[in-house]
């Protein structure tokens, strides 16, 4: 009747419940406070008592769920779905979205310490990952044919992913280029503009000549870029913002106003 999982979790629950009562009374709890969650009388030290009671409640609940599931034993699961032999868990296809999600979470963390805009970028990445991840998980289970599943997934997501990736790439380039140009001198900005244009042209030409770029190269580029963005964010967080000089009065504008 009582499964091993139930015994583990319920054992923890009972042990911690007793611990909470002992702790409550030994730290100044009065009347029946420690026995009634503070309903009648004090519970003693709140930190210890509340955490112990919380732990006990959660462990007990987990124990009850596990006993309801019969410890999720293979035989019990097979009985639940009405088959004799429960199959092994099928392999799921590989996906880069978990790693992108981790970088998104890292970006959010850096953004929380540095700037809300970076946090929003991280949030957008995580939201995109949540949707992509869900679609991957759905496609994995659409049919029993992995190739058909992949095709199905791409048919739905590619029309969204390709424009979104294009917009994101343009956005990143524009943002990065603007930061560089704002920091460069007047002549330097011209050189930087030409250099950036050449790099974009070069990448475009490379992609046009070799449309099926090696996935490893793309993965490496994305990893390096993501790492650089995070590291840059941390450095910026620690160094703080650069000093902004007051803008020079525009003589011509003054002349016009006169």
């Amino acid at each position: 009747m009582f499964t091993t999982g139930f015994k583990l979790y319920f054992g923890i629950a009972v042990g911690l419940f007793i611990a909470a009562i002992v702790y409550g009374y030994s730290t100044g709890g009065g009347h029946v406070g420690p026995l009634t969650w503070g309903w009648k009388g004090g519970v003693g030290d709140h930190i210890g008592y509340v955490v112990l009671m919380g732990l006990s409640t959660v462990a007990g609940t987990l124990g009850l769920i596990l006993v309801a599931f019969r410890d999720a034993d293979p035989a019990a699961q097979a009985h639940y779905v009405g088959v004799d032999q429960l199959p092994s868990t099928p392999m799921v296809t590989g996906s880069v979205w978990p790693v992108v999600g981790a970088f998104g979470a890292g970006t959010m963390v850096v953004g929380l310490a540095l700037h809300s805009a970076i946090f929003v970028v991280g949030l957008v990445i995580c939201a995109a990952v949540a949707i992509e991840w869900s679609m991957d998980a759905w496609a994995d289970r659409a049919t029993g044919d992995p190739a058909a599943n992949r095709e199905l997934r791409n048919r739905i997501m590619a029309p969204i992913e390709i424009p979104a990736a294009g917009v994101a790439t343009i956005g990143i380039i524009v943002l990065a280029a603007s930061r560089i140009l704002l920091n460069a001198s007047k002549n330097g900005a011209v050189i930087w503009s030409i250099a950036i244009a050449v790099v974009i042209l070069g990448i475009g030409t490379l992609y046009a000549t070799k449309p099926k770029l090696n996935k490893n190269i793309i993965a490496g580029l994305v990893l390096v870029t993501a790492g650089a963005v995070l590291a840059g964010g941390i450095v910026a967080a620690v160094d703080g913002e650069r000093e902004f000089h007051p803008s020079q009065p525009d003589d011509s504008a003054e002349e016009h106003s006169e």
Partner: peptide, 18 residues
Amino acid sequence: TNIAFPRAALAAGWGYLL
């Protein structure tokens, strides 16, 4: 045949690293 939630396990590994 595999761990439960392998994608979450991968995300957790990279999250830990980062």
